[in-house]
Design a protein around this nucleic acid. Structure first.
Lengths: 191, 191
DNA sequence: GAAAGTGATGGGACTTGGTCTCATCAACCG
DNA sequence: CGGTTGATGAGACCAAGTCCCATCACTTTC
């Protein structure tokens, strides 16, 4: 594989991020991204299923790691401990290079409805995947839903902090999850 | 207003739901929806900003009610009580007609990625709105995020049950939220 | 070493979502 | 009765995304 100029996919990602940054997502045509990467529209759509996906690559890998992280947490462990295992498992993908591009990527996404939509779907996907993995362990439906949802809250918080301050993502995530748990436990109900 | 055939918007919604049901969302063109409603593509896009929105109308009203429900909960009350106020506040929009069309609408949405994406965005929007409204009451950031997220879990659960069994939505939502709270409180942390 | 195969690419036709502009036409108002 | 208003129709236009076929670099096989 890779008989021609290598890294076509990477070149597309870089070209897209640059162009979105320079002139905005909506003002950038797929053909333009391809051109800057030395390719054509056809080739772009062979690598990414639509215009947005160039910003959301690697999601499949994260999903796999989340599932493995939950399934691989030794029994007996509560649902939230398994979620912690999932967050720790994805830490390997949080490289320095990813941290460097993070803010630029976030800024592009935040500036466009279509992209925010895709991001919401991504997050919901993470939650669903964790919920399903928890149910596979025998966690009851509602508990799985709650634990998975709190896990994604922690994931968002941890990601923000990690972009801000760096450090070991696994540690940041563990702390965030514990804070979320305490906040949830402190909620008063109807009396 | 309404000098020509009235209810253009309603006709479009009905035509869309019928066509999506008959031949699927992707196999239905906007022009076809408009045609069945006795209108044209131009008019369609005057009523809905894109092809999907015909299935997601009324979101603005829900957002308003959620915010009012939280802001209108008398102090002092915990974050989750305010969220309960929000869920109760939207109950007025859950009519019998809406319940009748609910399952068909859900089936169409579930069958298509684009629509599931929009739905995820809608839910995330509810959560964000509640979170912001809670912060306006002085609830700390993280507590607001957790309460809002648990609120949307309860909202989903309540909606499912209400579609299934009917009854007073406010009551169903209250019960769902209490169950969610108990599930969250029962989560064990790292020792 | 030539022929056949393979996989990534180029190119262009085509459909459809979505935007924009201008014309039309029914109702209302003075 | 003539002018205004607001919803609609009509059609040009652009970009996203799909499809199909040609091409070309490299590999395998005989």
């Amino acid at each position: 594989m890779g008989r021609w100029e290598p890294d076509a996919r990477d070149r597309l990602v870089r070209a897209a991020l640059d162009l979105f940054d320079e002139q905005g997502y909506e003002n950038t045509a797929v053909a333009q991204i391809a051109e800057r990467a030395g390719l054509t529209k056809s080739t772009y759509f062979r690598h990414f299923k639509d215009k947005r996906e160039v910003l959301f690559g690697g999601q499949d890998e994260l999903v796999e790691l989340l599932v493995e992280g939950i399934a691989g947490t030794p029994e007996p462990a509560g649902a939230l401990r398994a979620v912690e295992g999932a967050l720790v498992a994805i830490a390997v993908t949080f490289s320095e290079e990813r941290r460097a591009n993070g803010p630029r990527r976030l800024a592009v996404i935040a500036a466009n409805d279509e992209l925010r939509e895709r991001n919401a779907m991504k997050m919901a996907g993470f939650s669903n995947v964790m919920q399903e993995a928890l149910r596979q362990r025998g966690v009851p439906e509602l508990d799985a839903a709650v634990a998975a949802e709190l896990g994604t809250v922690a994931l968002r918080v941890a990601y923000d902090r990690w972009l801000e301050a760096g450090g070991d993502f696994a540690e940041v995530a563990r702390r965030a999850l514990e804070e979320v748990r305490l906040a949830a436990a402190a909620l008063e109900g109807a009396e």
